[in-house]
């Protein structure tokens, strides 16, 4: 039934991405060692990149692997090893009574509500709109995204440049001020 309605390769790609994403995300939760949690995070990020490619977001998939897996997770690993953070000692204590059941309940209600909204709405049938340019056809995905970023979203793009500069300067100041106080002591 399903295999006749949808091509088998796309189902295989979806199942692969779903397994990568869910296993990696559960690994981030369950693993005690922060280094292993960062490696599980890489698994999830690669799964999201697979899902991006399956939905014709080629440029974003490449950026996902380069920026997230290549830069952000490496930054996490740098900090973990720089701090020498070992196994977390505080996860077995529970200062707030019933925190985990309440968190599980809240998450279940939220996710269940989202899925119920999806099931009851009509615009998630998987059909693409008849009007407008299709993303996968015609000019490439990179061309389309570049045109959108440098015309429609030009001011937001310039603002991200300022944001990145502010973030870098802030990180440098955070590190330098600590060193100055240590020398003063």
């Amino acid at each position: 039934m399903i295999a006749t309605a949808y091509a088998v390769p796309s189902i295989l790609v979806f199942v692969t991405a779903a397994v990568l994403i869910v296993v990696g995300a559960l690994g981030v939760l369950a693993v005690r060692n922060p280094v292993h949690a960062a490696l599980s995070l890489i698994l999830t990020l690669f799964g999201v990149a697979v899902a991006f490619i399956a939905q014709s977001a080629d440029f974003l998939a490449a950026v996902q692997v380069i920026v997230y897996a290549g830069a952000i997770v490496v930054l996490f690993l740098f900090v973990i090893m720089f701090l020498g953070v070992g196994f977390s000692r505080h996860d077995h204590v529970e200062p707030l009574v019933g925190q985990r059941p309440l968190a599980a309940l809240g998450v279940a209600v939220t996710v269940g509500g989202i899925i119920a909204l999806l099931a009851s709405s009509h615009w998630v049938t998987g059909a693409t709109s008849a009007s407008g340019s299709s993303l996968a056809t015609g000019t490439g995905n990179v061309h389309q995204l570049g045109t959108a970023v440098f015309t429609t979203y030009l001011y937001a793009f310039e603002a991200t440049a300022a944001l990145l500069v502010i973030a870098v300067v802030g990180a440098v100041i955070l590190a330098r001020r600590e060193r100055a106080t240590e020398e003063a002591e």
Binding site: F14, A51, Q55, L118, T125, G126
Partner: peptide, 15 residues
């Protein structure tokens, strides 16, 4: 044809 969008949306909700 690609899989329906709802599958990816449910996957994103679970994540």
């Amino acid at each position: 044809m690609n899989v329906p969008a709802a599958w990816y949306l449910v996957l994103a909700a679970v994540l």
